[in-house]
Simulated scan of single mutants.
Amino acid sequence: MSITGSISPMSLGATLYIPCMRGDLFGYVLGPRRPAGLRSVVLCLEDSVREEDLPMAMSHLSVFLRQLLARDAAPADPLIFIRPRSAVMLEHILCMPGIEHVDGFVVPKAHADTLPAYLALPLHDRHRLMPTLETREVCDPQEMRRFRDQLLAVQDRILALRVGGNDLLQAMGLRRNPHRTAYDGPLGSVIAQLVAGFAPWGFALTAPVLERYADTALLREEVMRDIEHGLMSKTAIHPSQIPIIQNALAAEADEVEEARLVLAESSPAVFGRDGVMCEPATHRRWAERLLERAAQFGIADALVLRA
């Protein structure tokens, strides 16, 4: 499989979901209404659109794609993904003029029995997929192993796996406590299980949305927990969440220095730093990811100095 271009999952940052019911999609994504710092966006035709409103939403998407076709891409443009309702809908979307200029698609309700229909479609070489893990199959380790084996055969096509927190809780008949992070309830163990089941095989995972978007302190706390689990991108449902998420993803200066020492050719096999053991053979991957994070989102102390 030949995939054109290279996108780092970490470059997604805070991925803003925008329902296709909005009339001026171009204005929100690439025009005057575009939120500051927007790195990636998902134009949603699934749960955020009522069934009876689908014709209007599809019309809005078609207009957006034609506007996209009529302009030249710019380096600062956000990554653009579309979330269809089904493989049948995506087959129709793939026929729309301008579709070759989007970066890919979010696959809803993804598991081993639903993904083959999407993979069979005539995707453009540049199109990357982000399957969303949000059905009851996620809670079955055997099903997730079956899904992982399927994904390994098309790994170049998979940019990241998105964790659909609200849908997973819905499958359990629950809703998260509005005053606690996703990791303080049953969702926490599910996320940890998914990280253990996919990250060692080279798959990136993204963190679920915090629906209480006005609680900035809770959002910062949850991003810290996301980072502990290796989730370096997070779904956003409100523009105000974007700078909070991306500032929280900035690397600490002390960690950056430690990562550089771990990767230095002159470093010994094992050394101590501020009372902490560092072992390049086992800490190398962490160090590489930490420095990529610093390159993408900056160094926290430096951000404070510039504020």
Results as ranks from 00 to 15, higher is better:
residue 53 D to G: 14
residue 273 R to V: 14
residue 182 A to P: 02
residue 254 D to F: 09
residue 34 R to K: 10
residue 164 G to W: 03
residue 300 A to D: 10
residue 213 Y to N: 07
residue 74 A to D: 12
residue 292 E to S: 08
residue 53 D to A: 04
residue 14 A to D: 13
residue 7 I to N: 08
residue 92 H to F: 12
residue 255 E to S: 07
residue 222 E to D: 11
residue 300 A to R: 12
residue 209 V to C: 09
residue 85 R to S: 10
residue 41 V to Q: 00
residue 145 R to C: 14
residue 80 I to G: 01
residue 71 R to D: 11
residue 10 M to T: 13
residue 69 L to Y: 07
residue 259 A to K: 02
residue 304 V to C: 12
residue 187 L to V: 15
residue 104 G to V: 10
residue 278 C to H: 06
residue 206 T to V: 12
residue 298 G to H: 11
residue 24 D to W: 06
residue 20 C to Q: 15
residue 98 G to H: 01
residue 300 A to G: 08
residue 209 V to A: 08
residue 6 S to L: 12
residue 12 L to A: 13
residue 208 P to D: 03
residue 306 R to A: 14
residue 56 M to T: 15
residue 221 E to Y: 05
residue 255 E to V: 10
residue 57 A to M: 01
residue 31 G to V: 07
residue 260 R to Q: 11
residue 170 Q to M: 05
residue 132 T to D: 09
residue 257 E to R: 09
residue 265 E to T: 14
residue 227 I to N: 02
residue 302 A to Q: 13
residue 247 N to G: 05
residue 125 D to I: 08
residue 176 R to H: 05
residue 189 S to D: 11
residue 161 L to F: 12
residue 144 M to L: 04
residue 204 A to Y: 04
residue 112 A to G: 02
residue 67 Q to H: 10
residue 165 G to D: 05
residue 19 P to K: 02
residue 263 L to G: 07
residue 284 R to S: 12
residue 131 P to H: 03
residue 210 L to C: 02
residue 222 E to H: 10
residue 147 F to L: 04
residue 110 A to P: 00
residue 298 G to M: 12
residue 305 L to A: 08
residue 52 E to A: 06
residue 272 G to S: 03
residue 29 V to H: 15
residue 19 P to T: 13
residue 165 G to Y: 01
residue 87 A to G: 12
residue 116 P to F: 04
residue 96 M to E: 08
residue 117 A to C: 03
residue 144 M to R: 10
residue 277 M to E: 07
residue 101 H to L: 15
residue 173 G to Q: 00
residue 301 D to L: 07
residue 190 V to E: 02
residue 188 G to H: 03
residue 271 F to V: 06
residue 166 N to F: 07
residue 3 I to H: 04
residue 70 A to L: 11
residue 287 A to F: 04
residue 195 V to T: 09
residue 167 D to E: 09
residue 247 N to V: 03
residue 174 L to M: 13
